[in-house]
């Protein structure tokens, strides 16, 4: 396992053409567990995602899908391989540059919502704009706009604990949308919701996709993944199957 061919060097990787939002080329993520024991969370994953696609990444726990999501979300960098996101070669960036990419190019939706408990819905949605340095008035306008898109305009001054689970997730979606990212990255977005609310949230994603957004869904549930138009199955750190639906 330890011998990987160093010849798949990056010099052979070309920058992807314009329509490609994500290009992953032979991504490896290896963890050293001391004493020459290496664990490969990802072993050579390659795929492209075009602009406007609705993709689900599926796999059981331990399949490496979380690691893959962290790499796609620019929270982490691969041990080896090239990762392009909307023209940025992410795999080579520093911490602060990654922060910039996360801010501009990625909208996260998490299973546990990850909203700031003490801040109002509006302020939560404003956060990405704050970190991109947008002046207050413009920020407010955009945040309100994003909340309107998820039908929460009238609840924008409520704190997360005053909102239902579905409403919280919609706030999180508004936050993901607000900076017009290249992709919306949703990690088990319905995992903490009952199935009716889950369907409602999937409806929101469907509308966003129709509006032209690129959506990447990470899930282990088939009926959730079924909303996507393409499913990438991951198992044991490799892509098992890449199927297109409809």
């Amino acid at each position: 396992m330890g011998t990987r061919t160093g010849t798949s060097s990056l010099s052979e990787t070309q920058m992807p053409p314009d329509g490609v939002v994500i290009k992953a080329d032979d991504l490896w993520k290896t963890y050293d567990m001391g004493e020459a024991i290496q664990v490969h969370a990802l072993s050579g994953v390659s795929f492209d995602i075009d602009r406007g696609e609705y993709v689900a990444i599926m796999g059981p726990s331990g399949s490496g899908k979380s690691t893959l999501m962290n790499l796609i979300g620019c929270l982490d960098t691969p041990t080896q391989g090239a990762y392009w996101l909307n023209g940025h070669l992410v795999s080579e960036l520093s911490d602060d540059e990654l922060a910039y990419i996360r801010n501009k190019e990625i909208g996260f939706v998490f299973q546990t919502f990850n909203l700031l408990a003490r801040a109002s819905a509006l302020h939560n949605v404003e956060l990405p704009l704050i970190y991109s340095g947008m002046p207050a008035r413009e920020r407010l306008e955009k945040a309100e706009d994003a909340l309107r898109k998820v039908d929460l305009a009238e609840r924008m001054n409520h704190k997360p604990n005053e909102l239902s689970g579905g409403q919280r997730q919609r706030v999180a979606i508004a936050r993901a949308l607000v900076n017009n990212p290249s992709i919306i990255l949703a990690d088990e977005p319905t995992g903490n919701l009952d199935s009716a609310t889950g369907e409602e949230i999937m409806g929101v994603f469907g509308r966003l996709h129709e509006a032209g957004n690129t959506i990447l869904l990470v899930t282990h549930e088939h009926d959730i993944a079924a909303h996507a138009h393409r499913i990438i199955h991951v198992r044991d750190g490799r892509i098992e199957r890449d199927e297109r639906i409809g």
Binding site: L10, S11, T13, G87, H88, Y100, G133, P135, R139
Partner: peptide, 29 residues
């Protein structure tokens, strides 16, 4: 920037510069 060879410069694909937040952004944060 990685390139296959130098003569591909003509069809050089886009690579975006990473721009830190403008100076006013410091005050925002």
């Amino acid at each position: 920037i990685r390139m296959a060879s130098l003569d591909q410069t003509a069809s050089f694909p886009q690579a975006r510069a990473i721009r830190p937040a403008a100076r006013s952004g410091v005050w925002v944060s």
